[in-house]
Amino acid sequence: MNTLVYALLLFTSISFGQEWNTNFETAKAEAITKNQHIILVFSGSDWCAPCMKLEREIWDTEAFKSYAKENYTLLKADFPKRKKNKLSKALQTQNEQLAETYNPNGYFPLVVVLDKTGKQLGALGYKKTTPEAYIKLLNAF
């Protein structure tokens, strides 16, 4: 019985979970296919308090998840500090290159809205607001 419960929970989290890409080229290809803008998030997932708040208050909400699923391709560039969260060398290199291009000042969190080809349309950081208001800010770009 426990196995069935775990399988259902796993299926539910996969079916309704948010799809965050970690590969820039994959995200661009998806954005082109779906004709969507890309939301690129620079995050320090294990050390940046505002990054964690943004995750909890905006990205993890049903309002954002359902809107983003239909309207955005999501890409996360993470910069963890803890050894247990270390990224692969290839992913770390890609994220550093993304930072050089889109986040040269090293702000965390930084949310960059790109068109489907990777051209920057605008950027913002953490804001203490509702998911719906944050979506409006993203759409303003």
Rank of each mutant, 00 (worst) to 15 (best):
M1R: 03
T3Y: 13
T3S: 14
A7I: 10
L8Q: 13
L9W: 04
T12F: 12
G17C: 13
Q18S: 12
W20Y: 07
W20Q: 02
T22G: 08
N23L: 02
N23T: 06
F24E: 03
E25A: 03
T26F: 05
K28F: 13
K28C: 11
K28R: 13
E30D: 12
I32Y: 04
Q36I: 06
H37T: 09
S43R: 03
G44M: 10
S45R: 07
D46Q: 10
M52N: 04
L54T: 12
E55M: 10
R56W: 08
W59A: 08
E62P: 08
A63E: 15
F64I: 09
K69T: 00
E70M: 10
N71H: 15
N71W: 01
N71Y: 05
T73A: 02
T73Y: 09
L74F: 04
A77N: 06
D78N: 05
K81I: 11
R82F: 08
R82P: 01
A90C: 12
A90R: 14
Q92L: 14
Q94M: 12
N95E: 09
E96Q: 15
T101S: 15
Y102E: 08
P104G: 10
N105G: 02
G106H: 08
F108P: 01
L110P: 06
V111S: 06
V112A: 13
V113C: 01
D115R: 07
K116H: 02
G118E: 00
K119C: 00
K119G: 02
G122A: 06
A123Y: 04
K127M: 15
A133T: 11
I135E: 01
L137C: 04
L137R: 05
N139S: 15
